[in-house]
Design a binder for these strands. Structure first.
Lengths: 221, 221
DNA sequence: CGCCCTGTTGAACTCTTTCAAAAAATGTGG
DNA sequence: CCACATTTTTTGAAAGAGTTCAACAGGGCG
């Protein structure tokens, strides 16, 4: 882990974070060289960041090295604010970048005190954001089979792992969710069926049983 | 526009919206039939929604009909909360769905409304979410050329429409942002150059001039 | 000058889409 | 309950967009 409190400086008056947090907040600046990591996916989210100058990329990776960059952050952009205590993606300097760093807990404490209620609303929005981040990785970097496996696991989890899963949506809806055509979705279903990862239950093709969640997780990862 | 205050009912105790808003908030329920639109992209965001039962899809569309579904919302999920006054996507019933509807303004009023104009944390997170929603449409439904045009317009705007645009990132970064390979990005650059939509400036291929923003917008739309 | 990094271009290949047809499921009316 | 129409899903074959593998070109820097 990097030591981040190298350059302690007075927060700029116009900085969003500084404005949000007020002057009493611990706030320092650090300069990252090209390619340096600001934080990694899975690390504890101790700080919130705002760019003073330079460019930062935030991204997720699949285990085989496929990478999906969520955003390029330029001057004044904020990033790294998490709902939970863990960073959901990695942040790296694209160019040399000067970054303003604020303690997450002190920031959130201040917000909670000053604007009670906004914190819980913030939670809801952050949850949507989290879903969107995962979905960008899926859309940008997964194959048709990966996508369908991920979709089935998502539905399985949200429906609380039922024995027989009833999908409320048709193949076109699934396709438009996964960035595919309905024919490709149908073919992917057939492959998973032939490979014994699922079977259809009853007359309809919308009721199905996941036979091998492990294998689906493998595809998704 | 639909009349939504059909069934006025006491908010469920465990509902997120009710919990957020408190019991004094105007809160009603409405049942949407399969295929019905809850709200459309671009409409005024008067209400916030939470699902009681059924499934709702939220999506964006390109002008030629390509559709990208952001999320399927199931029981208890909240959706439709916007930062600004306009809905950024469309919401429709996948199945018959019962939805709890709350007035946005009364919800936000209750949640200690901050003074207008000042940056809020919620604003910052919502901006990230908004970007993610647009990017999902790009990743799921746009061609390589569309994607590069969208990227260039995004950078152009964020760099305040400079004459000569200096990209801080290399082709691989752009590729990983757009869900492409670096070779495809390079080819797309060459096509846009040959079609006189941009030209490279100076020695490097990271400095460029947008020659026809209109045409790029056309590609992106 | 030569090396490394970044970017471009070509050719073969692969995955997904498109177009087409048939099969399966759902709904309707007698 | 059955016949018929409609919608949804599956499957096949051909076409297309993007990837992969490979070679090369140009600039920056020791």
């Amino acid at each position: 882990m990097l030591i981040r409190t190298t350059t302690v400086s007075r927060p700029a008056v116009d900085g969003q974070l500084a404005a949000l947090a007020g002057q009493q907040i611990i706030c320092s600046e650090f300069t990252y060289r090209r390619g340096m990591e600001v934080f990694g996916e899975g690390e504890e989210a101790e700080y919130v960041y705002q760019i003073v100058s330079g460019t930062i990329r935030t991204y997720k990776m699949l285990c085989d090295g496929r990478r999906q960059i969520n955003s390029f952050h330029l001057a004044d952009d904020m990033f790294g604010l998490e709902n939970g205590i863990i960073h959901r993606f990695t942040a790296e300097a694209v160019t040399q970048a000067k970054v303003r760093i604020t303690s997450r807990s002190s920031l959130l404490d201040t917000i909670a005190q000053r604007e009670p209620g906004q914190a819980s609303l913030l939670n809801l929005v952050t949850r949507n954001l989290q879903h969107a981040e995962n979905h960008m990785l899926l859309l940008g970097r997964k194959t048709a089979l990966d996508k369908l496996a991920a979709f089935l696991l998502e539905m399985d989890e949200r429906l609380a792992h039922p024995n027989v899963m009833s999908l409320p949506m048709n193949r076109r809806d699934i396709a438009d969710y996964l960035g595919l055509t309905l024919e490709t979705v149908s073919r992917a279903f057939s492959i998973l069926r032939d490979d014994k990862m699922l079977r259809f239950d009853g007359q309809t093709q919308r009721q199905l049983v996941l036979l091998d969640r492990e294998a689906l997780v493998q595809l998704d990862a």
